[in-house]
């Protein structure tokens, strides 16, 4: 179905502003501030410039990849090795983007309109987008994602600069607290989004299988955990659905 031609531009900007507001009131505004204060301080310690640190947040927008890059730029470490490590740490961006696209696009969406929201995609932005976008009219969803993404990315860039400047004032324990922001916020907000058995099982199994894979020193442990735990969760979801169907008939 074509989108109604009578839709004024105001509706789209409504989606954008709603995205900004959603981002500002989400736990991630708070989490990203502290995470990137930690990253800014790290860049200062490694002798990089403040402009570089802020540009890294704007361009990479993937916490683990940024930390790997900064620590991997030290002399004596192969640049190829660092590039591979950065790339492997960002594989998770692939499935989240694949899962997002069918939710936000409509038939008249052009490829270039998706380049920007796709750059904003990180687990935080994805979680907020997947939670809210299905409640919006389809033609507002891309604008909504842009609002969430631009707001959180801006917060990240600003607080990278803040962390760089106040680095000397931070107590050592702060760095540990800043790093813990990522796992605790991912866990509770992914749990909040988990409505179906599919999501709950995927989350629980990922928490159980992830450490097993890592302890066994399996290569690409994150990827394997995602595929194995995700497939079991999906299988259970199908089983539950077919049982529900046969019970109903």
């Amino acid at each position: 179905m074509a989108t109604p031609s009578s839709e004024p531009a105001a509706v789209t900007s409504g989606g954008f502003l709603l995205g900004c507001r959603t981002a500002l009131t989400s736990v991630f505004a708070f989490v990203i501030s502290f995470t990137y204060i930690g990253f800014g301080a790290l860049c200062h310690d490694y002798g990089l410039s403040m402009g570089w640190a802020m540009l890294s947040t704007a361009l990479q927008w993937a916490g683990p990849a940024q930390v790997i890059l900064v620590t991997g730029l030290a002399p004596g470490i192969s640049l190829i090795e660092t590039a591979v490590a950065v790339s492997l740490s960002s594989v998770r961006l692939f499935p989240i983007v694949v899962a997002l696209i069918p939710v936000v696009r409509h038939e008249s969406t052009r490829l270039w309109q998706l380049i920007v929201p796709v750059h904003f995609m990180a687990i935080s932005v994805w979680i907020e987008s997947m939670r809210m976008a299905p409640r919006l009219a389809r033609d507002q969803r891309i604008a909504f994602c842009n609002g969430v993404g631009l707001t959180l990315l801006s917060i990240g860039v600003i607080f990278t600069g803040v962390g760089y400047v106040i680095q000397a004032l931070l107590p050592a324990i702060f760095a540990a607290g800043a790093m813990f922001m990522t796992p605790i916020s991912f866990l509770v907000s992914a749990a909040r989004n988990a409505k179906l058995l599919l999501d709950k099982l995927a989350l629980g199994l990922g928490l159980a299988i992830g450490p097993a894979m890592a302890f066994a020193k399996v290569e690409f442990d994150l990827l394997w955990t995602g595929i194995i735990a995700g497939t079991i969760a999906y299988g259970a979801h199908r089983l539950q659905r077919s049982r529900g169907r046969s019970a109903a008939s």
């Binding site: 991912f186 999501d199 995927a202 199994l205 990922g206 955990t225 995602g226 735990a229 969760a233």
Partner: peptide, 8 residues
Amino acid sequence: AVATALVA
């Protein structure tokens, strides 16, 4: 499901 398990 795979993406959610990856987050975990």
